[in-house]
Design a protein around this nucleic acid. Structure first.
Length: 296
DNA sequence: AAAACGACCAACCGCGCTCAT
DNA sequence: GATGAGCGCGGTTGGTCGTTT
């Protein structure tokens, strides 16, 4: 009874709770989180309230938007520089939270790891045929590449970031290998902020060329780079799934404006001649020359 | 049609820092 | 200077949804 009142509520937030929290922030600002519970407004810890506000309720969040290619590149570069300082990295990505960045990076790492693991798996292992499905499933992971934003159609409703100003929806046509195109440096806040950090002057991606020794990669990325030397392979990966690799090899620009696809909910129509089918036709033993990664 | 699997995301937890007392 | 509350951050977990077989 009385204990119930003091009970701290956990789990998913209800709309009513959100409303209370928003009202509190309107009145008192985004602080005094603990007072929310002290006042009996919510049975949530201050910590939980703050998290909810920061990650979901704050204005101008890009909830439901996939990371764009540009954003992904920013994350990769900044991660190489700062390490897992997600909050810091998030400050360079308007509308993104540290949680977003963290989740994104985590997913990406898993994906990369799986790709590499698959590619490093000797074809002999497939002789067992124990898990044919696995192999089949791994390959398409590559042509997840241009479709980072694909699912945005299902979840993108609130991509109303203040800085996103996309006049017209970009036509979502995969342009697989336009490596001659130059990535436009359109990161809104990125440059301005980067200017404060000396070592970040290299970040605008167009300058990334085939040999750019000053580029700093995380040890992990360097390891990946060291193990994957087939440039053609990287081209297939494209600029998204292994952008740090792609950057090194001067891969192409973003394939389309992800924000647009996010905003209009359009779903990318994959050309039959994109990387996807490319990999389908790829000889399975092409990866045989890639050494397996040591277990981390 | 259903099971298996992977991707993604929201939320929690623990630790460390800051600041007021 | 010591201490405790509040807060921020990074790591982790669990649930949901979509895809593949």
């Amino acid at each position: 009874m009385e204990g119930k009142r003091d009970e701290i509520r956990k789990g998913p937030w209800k709309a009513e709770e959100d409303e209370v929290l928003i009202n509190h922030v309107k009145k008192y600002g985004a602080r005094d989180w603990s007072s929310i519970r002290a006042k009996g407004l919510l049975q949530r810890t201050g910590k939980s309230c703050r998290l909810r506000w920061v990650n979901k309720l704050r204005p101008n969040l890009k909830n439901g938007c996939k990371f764009s290619v540009e954003e992904e590149r920013v994350v990769i570069e900044l991660q190489a520089q700062f390490g897992n300082k997600w909050a810091k990295i998030a400050t360079y990505l308007p509308g993104r939270t540290d949680n977003d960045v963290k989740n994104f990076w985590s997913s990406r790492q898993k994906r990369l790891a799986r790709i590499l693991q698959t590619s490093a798996t000797p074809s002999s292992s497939s002789s067992s045929n124990s898990k044919p499905r696995k192999v089949k499933k791994e390959v398409p992971a590559f042509h997840d590449v241009p479709t980072l934003q694909e699912e945005s159609s299902t979840k993108a409703q609130s991509c109303s970031s203040s800085y996103i100003d996309t006049p017209e929806p970009a036509s979502i046509v995969p342009l697989p290998f336009h490596s001659d195109l130059v990535v436009k440096n359109e990161l809104p806040c990125y440059d301005a902020n980067l200017a404060q950090v000396e070592t970040q002057t290299q970040i605008p991606f167009p300058q990334i060329s085939q040999h750019q020794p000053e580029l700093t990669f995380s040890p992990e990325s360097q390891e990946l780079l060291a193990r994957l030397e087939d440039p053609f392979l990287f081209n297939v990966f494209g600029a998204v799934d292994a952008p740090e690799l792609g950057a090194q090899l001067s891969l192409g620009p973003p394939l389309f404006d992800p924000f647009s696809s996010c905003l209009n909910g359009a779903r990318e129509v994959r050309s039959p001649t994109t990387r996807g089918t490319f990999f389908d036709d790829f000889p399975s033993d092409v990866f045989d020359n890639i050494e397996p990664l040591p277990s981390p």
